[in-house]
Simulated scan of single mutants.
Amino acid sequence: MPKALLSDRRRHTHAIHRIAAPVPTVPQEYVHLRESDAILLTNWSALGSDRYAVTAQWPDGGVYGGSVPLLITQTIRQSALLIGHAELGVPLKHQTLMEWMDFNVSEDFYDPKNKPDNLFILLTCTPNNPRSSRVELSILSEGRLVAESLLDYSWIAPGAYRRLRGAYADAAWGTGVPPAPLPAHTVGRAHEHEVVLAPSGLPNRWELRSDVSNQALYDHRVDHVPGLVLIEAAYQATHAVTGPGRPPVRVMSTFDRYVEFDAPCWIDAAVVPAPDEGVVRVEVTGVQNGERTFSVYMDCAG
């Protein structure tokens, strides 16, 4: 069953006026990115009591192509990594593992006229154990709450990670040719290189395309398909099922196991009963080698 998202946290908006001496730059290694143009965050500050503030700017175009779902997930991802490394003492050489991530977005935030110049993110970080943390985020635009998120992530030392991954720690990178993509407009994308799904020959089932030349999803060499790619695959599959005009307003993601580069990963999507009127819920699952790798529920407006 999907997890419940956070309740409204507008009571935190007063903290906007209490940031003291923000750090002026965000090091690339703190957000695990090689390309500086991919960094959305601009500074951060500790507010006390395990609470932190982060500011962000969304570009007009660039590597993320103006995609609101992609920008939202990257903003959440980068904020959690930044505070983990900068404030919580997570070693830079450790591997971080996203266990699950939920978020919701105001429907009107998809309207181009509401595109923000600056975003303000409030985070509360609660340790689960010495190597895991729960992060709650509120994202505000011009003082208005436009998105919120709840996620768990953990970290693991390099030696332990190599033992965990075994031969996959040295997985080949960029050697295979991804299958031909679906038409971009059918999955809510403008360009073919942005498409992460390929036809399977079956209705509502697609093969995941691992095109490492897509810099928005593959900024640097990794040994498995990143979780960001899987959420993007879920978004595109949802769009293929529901059609245009139904932006996702609530996303609930669970990651069960790594998606590898050496075998097909099949993406299935189905409309399932929704908890609220006026919402279409799509369940998206990934299956590789006969085992579920991840699942995403997307509630779409319209």
Rank of each mutant, 00 (worst) to 15 (best):
R281H: 08
Y161P: 03
C125W: 00
A237K: 00
A172K: 10
Q57M: 09
E136V: 15
N204T: 10
G227I: 11
E232M: 05
V251F: 10
Q215T: 14
T293K: 02
S149V: 09
M101A: 08
K113T: 07
A172E: 14
H12V: 13
T242E: 10
E136N: 06
V195P: 01
S49E: 13
E277K: 14
G243R: 08
P2D: 07
V212Q: 12
A15F: 15
N104L: 01
E87F: 05
G227H: 10
P273I: 06
A4R: 09
P112F: 03
R10Q: 03
A86Q: 10
T242F: 10
S200M: 06
S138E: 08
P183E: 13
I139C: 05
A160I: 01
K3T: 08
H94F: 13
S132H: 07
L151C: 10
G290K: 04
I121F: 11
D50R: 12
E99K: 13
V135P: 09
R131H: 15
I76P: 03
N129G: 15
A15C: 04
P27W: 12
V63A: 04
C300H: 00
E283R: 15
L40Q: 03
P203G: 09
V146I: 04
H85T: 04
L119S: 01
P226M: 08
S49Q: 14
L151H: 06
G243L: 12
P178Y: 07
E194T: 13
C125R: 09
G201A: 05
Q215W: 10
Q215M: 15
W58G: 05
P130S: 00
P178N: 08
H32R: 13
D170G: 11
V259D: 02
L151F: 05
Y218G: 13
H220P: 01
Y153K: 07
R34T: 15
L123S: 10
Y218N: 12
M1N: 11
V282G: 00
D111L: 05
Q28G: 11
R205V: 05
E29H: 14
D219W: 05
F255R: 11
D37M: 10
T25V: 14
L197A: 14
L71W: 03
I231N: 12
V26S: 04
G201H: 02
E87L: 08
D8C: 04
S67V: 02
G66H: 00
S154K: 11
D256P: 00
G48C: 08
E207I: 10
A234F: 06
Q28T: 08
H32K: 06
D262C: 03
I83P: 15
S7N: 13
V90C: 12
V187N: 03
